[in-house]
């Protein structure tokens, strides 16, 4: 909670010091038609003549009442936009998150179990290369190959152009989701795979594994009984803690695929000088990340009861 307040102050300071004139971005191109008197009227109506701390308190009071203001671009309440956009984004982010977690874990385990083999080397170099791939560039390539060249998937958006909400079939939604999800999840795979691999190697060289081997356990049984539990814990917490990167990746991916999600909204808000929306989404993303970290802490305790007595995070 304290963090949220600190971040809200921080982002408020940043935004209120921006050179973008809110009146101008509100009125748009017709700014020259407004007389100075009208301008002061608008400024007074918005409370722009007040001091910065006063503005902040007015704004935070409104936020506590659940009112994030009205977006300047979309001319709708910010909460509505965030809700609508987030429901589109969560589909994309959720699927990508689960997929990258599962594939990353599998790849990491495969590499870790066969340390030093060709498979390990392939997975390792694949992950290292992916880790330095710009997500949006990958998205562009995918679009070029699968959408423009092979024509398998549509080029962008979340639904066929010109269709109404409610008319979109499940198959269409899936078709439009496929490429963005692919792009977003492929970046997340790298970090989780590398991490799992390290952990797997560490676990496999520990004493209890040597003991289990001495008892005659090997292969899958060894892995199920002693390996998975020990590596799943750090992998899960890492994956929950990666909500921030997921959000950043979603911003880029949504921009490439013009997918109508939260990330695209934040870019439009920033470029268009839509201050209420920008602040609203910033606060929302902080909550989003906080939820991720919080769930990681909770799951830690569920999976590993020993953690109850200790602090779950450093």
């Amino acid at each position: 909670m304290g963090l949220l307040v600190a971040i809200s102050i921080f982002s408020f300071i940043l935004i209120s010091n921006s050179p973008v004139d809110p009146v101008q971005s509100y009125i748009g191109a017709e700014i020259s038609r407004i007389s100075p008197e009208q301008r002061t009227n608008i400024e007074e109506y918005w409370g722009l003549h007040r001091s910065k701390p006063e503005q902040y308190f007015l704004w935070s009071k409104a936020v506590f009442q659940g009112n994030l203001g009205e977006s300047l671009i979309y001319r709708k309440p910010v909460t509505d936009i965030i809700w609508e956009r987030f429901s589109a984004s969560i589909l994309l982010m959720g699927i990508a998150w689960v997929l990258s977690g599962v594939f990353g874990l599998i790849l990491g385990i495969l590499a870790g179990m066969n340390e030093g083999s060709i498979l390990d080397r392939i997975i390792k170099s694949y992950s290292f290369i992916l880790a330095s791939t710009p997500a949006f560039w990958f998205g562009l390539l995918v679009l070029m190959v699968f959408a423009a060249w092979l024509n398998w998937f549509p080029v962008g958006l979340a639904a066929p152009a010109g269709s109404l909400r409610g008319e979109v079939s499940l198959a269409d939604t899936f078709k439009h989701l496929f490429l963005p999800v692919l792009t977003l999840s492929i970046g997340g795979v790298a970090s989780i795979a590398l991490h799992t691999r390290e952990k797997m190697i560490e676990v496999l060289s520990s004493e209890f594994i040597r003991f289990a081997r001495a008892k005659g356990l090997s292969g899958m049984r060894l892995f199920w009984r002693h390996g998975l539990r020990n590596i799943s814990l750090p992998a899960i917490s890492l994956h929950f803690a990666s909500f921030g990167e997921l959000f950043g990746g979603a911003v880029l991916t949504e921009q490439v695929f013009s997918y109508p999600g939260l990330g695209q909204a934040v870019v439009r808000a920033g470029l268009g000088g839509d201050i209420p929306l920008l602040l609203g989404i910033t606060l929302f993303s902080v909550v989003f990340i906080f939820v991720g970290n919080f769930m990681a802490d909770l799951l830690y305790v569920v999976i590993d009861p020993r953690m109850k007595t200790k602090q779950a995070h450093d």
Partner: peptide, 21 residues
Amino acid sequence: IDLFLGLPHMVTLILISFMLG
């Protein structure tokens, strides 16, 4: 540090470069 890590990196970048124009 907590403040910066609590914000998505991309959003912080957008905010700061928005402020600096």
